[in-house]
């Protein structure tokens, strides 16, 4: 299985990391690697999440992540590709 990196822009508010980590835990998805850092905008943070998932399971992770109210945007960074796949949370992947 190929590793996929998700670049997730989240609101910089307390509890967001717990929401993301809890989602992975309760839906039984494994996180390979996770890092959190600031962005140019002090109101947002960026999470890089590396998962070992493909196809359908990966789509589910993205769809479920996108349901978190504090998640603003998700990009999938494909290895060997300059152009990331943008999972635009607005409006298609929103609930």
């Amino acid at each position: 299985m190929a590793q996929h990196t998700l670049e997730v822009i989240v609101e910089n508010s307390p509890g967001v990391l717990a929401r993301v980590a809890g989602l992975f835990s309760r839906r039984a998805y494994n996180i390979e690697r996770l890092s959190v850092g600031p962005t140019d905008n002090p109101e947002t943070s960026k999470m890089d999440i590396v998962v070992n998932l493909e196809g359908h399971a990966l789509e589910q992770v993205i769809a479920q992540l996108d349901k978190l109210i504090n998640v603003i945007a998700i990009k999938e960074i494909v290895p060997n590709s300059a152009q990331p796949i943008v999972h635009d949370t607005q409006p298609d992947y929103q609930n």
Binding site: H56, E59, Q60, A63, D66, K67, D92, Y93, Q94, N95
Partner: peptide, 18 residues
């Protein structure tokens, strides 16, 4: 469905109407 995460969660959807 109104919830994108339900599409394809348990069963593949040939046509998704979101």
């Amino acid at each position: 469905d109104v919830d994108p995460a339900e599409i394809g969660k348990n069963r593949f959807a040939d046509v998704a109407v979101l």
